[in-house]
């Protein structure tokens, strides 16, 4: 077994054990932290397909994260008030939310990606940022769903066989989604599609000479990436019982990129390691000083300067991709 695989299993085992250990030691709040770690890791895993494998530095993934959040909020609100949504009576169901979140974000990603992917480099970063900000401003002006105040979720959407009001149950759902997200990432990475996506990142003309058109491959990667991040956004809103406009704002996009860089760009376990470190820093440093992000910045600086493969690169060796 490679060191990277060992590290992946170790990180996932530690994350899975955290809520149980927290319960046993009498710190139930840590279950919520573990859930936050799993959700952010899932969101970053989505972005990792576009950024880590495709080299697409999307500064607009907050839009997809927020679309997921609002899908959860809208379904919960309509279901609770027994109001039909688009003429249909809908149940307060998490799988339905994930489906809506993934489809909506996928559609938005297909449209914005079809335009954005005609650019590259800093222009791609700027155009994805611009689209995300457009969606942010649309959300805060949408009074029917809370406008600037966001959308509260009085009662979480349900999941068959689980009580989503119980923190450990919610964690287990988030953890299972994270495993599914990692499985998708891994399947993409070892597939012909993944190889072509990574090859297109290295040299467009060279991939054209072997019969590959880079644009549709990148678009599919961008859409899949957005769909995974949207499902994470839905879970984030469920966790906080609140779909906040800040989920759609550009700092969220930056946060997801930071998670990946901290953990290791293009590495399977990168987003998991990054999210775990990020949430730990946020919690422990945040309890010491309000300026905890200064120390996060120092950590990021250290990683960029001395461990460019992130935590995974530091432990498991040189990057497999990138």
């Amino acid at each position: 077994m490679t060191r990277e695989r060992l590290l992946t299993f170790a990180l996932l085992a530690a994350l899975l054990a955290l809520p149980f250990a927290a319960q046993a030691l009498g710190y139930p709040f840590y279950t919520t932290l573990a859930t936050r770690m799993a959700i952010l890791a899932l969101a970053a895993t989505g972005l990792n397909i576009a950024l880590g494998l495709g080299g697409l530095v999307s500064f607009g993934h907050a839009a997809f994260f927020g679309i997921g959040g609002y899908a959860a909020g809208i379904v919960a609100t309509h279901a609770m008030n027994a109001q039909p949504l688009l003429g249909l009576d809908i149940p307060a169901s998490m799988p339905l939310v994930w489906l809506l979140a993934a489809l909506s974000a996928g559609l938005v990603a297909a449209i914005t990606g079809a335009i954005s992917l005609r650019t590259s480099g800093v222009y791609f970063i700027m155009i994805t940022l611009a689209f995300a900000q457009m969606i942010f401003y649309f959300a805060i002006s949408w009074k029917a769903y809370g406008g600037e105040d966001g959308l509260s979720i009085a009662l979480r959407n349900g999941f068959p066989g689980m009580n989503t009001a119980v923190p450990r149950d919610l964690f287990m759902i988030a953890f299972a989604l994270l495993l599914a997200g990692l499985l998708i990432f891994w399947r993409v990475r070892v597939s012909r599609f993944g190889a072509a996506l990574h090859a297109a990142r290295q040299n467009e003309l060279r991939v054209a000479a072997i019969g590959i058109e880079p644009f549709p491959i990148r678009l599919v990667a961008f859409v899949v990436s957005a769909m995974i991040t949207a499902v994470a956004g839905a879970m984030f809103a469920e966790l906080n019982r609140f779909a906040s406009p800040s989920m759609l704002a550009w700092p969220m996009s930056g946060e997801l990129i930071v998670l990946i860089i901290l953990g290791g760009t293009g590495r399977l376990a990168g987003p998991v390691a990054g999210a775990m470190l990020y949430v730990m820093l946020e919690y422990w440093l945040g309890s010491i000083t309000e300026r905890w992000q200064f120390f996060l910045g120092l950590t990021l600086l250290g990683v960029v300067l001395f461990a460019r493969g992130g935590i995974v690169g530091l432990v498991a060796g040189k990057a497999r991709h990138g």
């Binding site: 190889a195 990574h198 290295q202 072997i210 019969g211 991709h321």
Partner: peptide, 13 residues
């Protein structure tokens, strides 16, 4: 493609 393995270079094509 220097940053792909031999298998990935072949697989991509």
């Amino acid at each position: 493609f220097p940053n792909l393995t031999v298998r990935e270079n072949l697989l991509a094509a």
